[in-house]
């Protein structure tokens, strides 16, 4: 059972289209497995629909309609080439469908029992998204965040000082959180989005500490 969902304002920003791409991807991954949030997003989009209906109509140029008509039967743009995805050797269906259009690197070593794979979004290449794998009962060193961090648990579970998080849960943390996640008996696989560009702030700190 899913116990941790995105906050109401995060779901609203997601439905409104104002969430940064990395966070939006993690929320979409959560919604794939969460009927509760899918229903909430559908409601929020319906609010968007009503807002659109309420808009005072603003005239287009006189030739806008004929111009549009003339373009209707032009072929749709070709879909982009398939992204490069390393084989992470995960059981089929482990990764959310929304990752299908992202580039995924091979596993990179961070610390004993901790690996990450860089997820690059061609439409938002500066957004900092990763898959993080922590072996059973391993601990990620204490870290604080340089910005907001969204984490979706894809497999297994972990706990920190305050709570336990299992597959399906989404954890939203702000820059003030300081925590030390500890994986459960099956280990833990997460999809995470971190604010703050390509610097992987806490990962580099982890690497430095464990060196």
């Amino acid at each position: 059972m899913i116990l941790h969902h995105p906050s109401p304002e995060t779901l609203l920003a997601y439905a409104a289209g104002s969430l940064p791409a990395g966070q939006s991807l993690v929320v979409a991954a959560h919604a794939e497995g969460c009927p509760h949030c899918r229903a909430e997003i559908a409601r929020l989009e319906a609010v968007g629909g009503e807002m659109l209906e309420d808009m005072p109509p603003e005239s287009l140029a006189l030739d806008a309609f004929t111009d549009t008509l003339a373009r209707l039967d032009q072929p749709a743009p070709r879909s982009p080439a398939l992204p490069r995805q390393a084989d992470l050797r995960l059981p089929a269906g482990t990764l959310p469908r929304i990752l299908a259009s992202a580039e995924i690197s091979r596993w990179l070593w961070v610390a004993p029992g901790v690996r990450y794979s860089r997820v690059r979004l061609p439409w938002a290449p500066k957004d900092n998204v990763m898959l993080l794998r922590v072996a059973a009962n391993k601990r990620v060193l204490a870290h604080s965040h340089g910005g907001a961090e969204f984490t979706q648990v894809l497999h297994g579970d972990f706990h920190d000082e305050t709570d336990r998080y299992a597959a399906g849960d989404l954890i939203e943390e702000d820059e003030h959180t300081n925590h030390q996640p500890h994986a459960g008996n099956q280990g833990c696989l997460c999809l995470a989005s971190l604010d703050g560009g390509l610097r992987l702030p806490w990962l580099t700190r982890l690497i430095r500490r464990s060196a």
Partner: peptide, 9 residues
């Protein structure tokens, strides 16, 4: 119906 509303939005 929609084009002027979308433009306004």
């Amino acid at each position: 119906h929609f084009a002027p509303r979308v433009k306004s939005f």
